[in-house]
Simulated assay, not measured.
Amino acid sequence: MPEWKIGLDLKQLGAVDIGLPGWMRGAAIGGALGASVRFNTPADIVKRYGPHGPMQFIDVFGKPGAITSDTQLMLLALDGIVRAHVRATWYERTDPVNEVALGMRRWLVMEQDGWFPRANELFERRWADRTTVEAIRHYMRTGTFGTIDKPLNDSQGSSALLRAGGAALWSTDLHEVFEIGARIAAMTHGHPNAYLAAGAYAVMIQYCLRTRNLIRAIDAARDELTRWKGHEPVHEALTRVVDAQFDPAKKFDPATMESFGDSTTAIGALAIAARAAISEHRFEYVVGRAITIAGDSAATGALAGSLYGIAGGGNYLPEELVAEVELSERMGTLAYQIRREFSDEPLYSEEFFSWFPFSQRRWSGHLG
């Protein structure tokens, strides 16, 4: 390996064996639970399911435990990050955002290229975000996505967040993680509130891989935010989240959770999810607080579940939900493959390279 090898040395991180699958499965479970109450009012949710919302899967997309479109794109983004890292080990200058872009295109055209995308469940239509779909179509017509400097739109929707977390794998440098996460979000969502919230989320994921301390991860994200122009709205939202943790009169009713922001926006969804994730040690209560709201409960549930899972909660996810959530076994295998690829003992078999065939197009910087 060259000395400039990028990525985390996951072999050295004690939280990884539970954190990686916990991250994916937590997001998948939280998104599925949130999807089941997405169009309900908080009063209706509490009346039907109790104060913590649904604790079992409900048939939303044709079967219980089906993942959402945000989770599909998150998983394909992770697949793309692995492909980019495989390419980088062959001494090619590599921009991981290019492979994430191809993964997003793959999702829209249902191209089952490689091992992970062979899962049909990744391509079923599950409330796909219109902004994301239009951005991918633009890419297919022009070969370009939006960038931070040249945005496609002014959208600040929440769907840009989950897939940006894949940036956490690319580097141990939090500056770089933030930038890549922000760039992944800016491909589809051009408002600074969206891509800066996504950069903050990526930093939180990366920090939790190493420390499992979510409050310190939020602090690290706030610190990185101050380096970016226009960071104040995201920084203020996360500061309110941390301050609320030390409020003696803690409240987690729907009105209080909704006070952290509009769940349909990236800032609001991240703040609600982060508040829920640091509120409790039990997964059902964390996700319940994130989804017993009006708005995009599928997004807040997925984000809260991912933060809970990455912060060492993989061993504490409800066993029955882990067993029932769509692609659970496949996510476990992907987590193992990621851990091996980003270690000093990567897999070199022909079979492994056939699982993650990276693009033959050399780096061009057109997404940067």
Rank of each mutant, 00 (worst) to 15 (best):
D154R: 14
T131R: 06
R130L: 13
W170E: 06
A135S: 15
A197S: 15
H138F: 12
A185T: 01
A194T: 01
A198H: 05
W170S: 10
T172Y: 00
D154G: 05
A185I: 01
S158K: 11
A168N: 05
R130Y: 09
H189W: 06
Y139T: 04
G157D: 13
D173W: 04
R137S: 10
T132R: 08
T144I: 06
R137H: 11
A186L: 09
A186I: 13
G143F: 02
T147S: 15
F145C: 06
A182S: 15
T188V: 04
T147Q: 11
A160H: 01
N193W: 09
G165V: 01
Q156N: 15
N193L: 00
L161R: 11
I184C: 03
Y139M: 08
A164V: 06
Y195P: 08
V177R: 05
R130Q: 12
A198S: 13
N193P: 03
D173R: 09
T144S: 11
A202I: 02
A185E: 06
D129K: 08
F178L: 00
E179Q: 13
D173K: 06
F178T: 02
G199K: 08
E134L: 14
G190A: 11
N153Q: 11
S159E: 14
K150V: 15
I136A: 03
S159I: 00
T172V: 10
R183C: 03
A135L: 10
E134S: 13
Y139E: 01
A135F: 05
T131K: 07
H189K: 05
G199H: 08
Y201H: 14
I148H: 02
E134W: 05
A128G: 00
T147W: 08
L169M: 10
G146R: 03
G146P: 07
G165Q: 03
A135D: 09
N153K: 03
S171Y: 05
W127L: 13
A168R: 04
T131W: 02
V177Y: 03
M187R: 12
W170K: 10
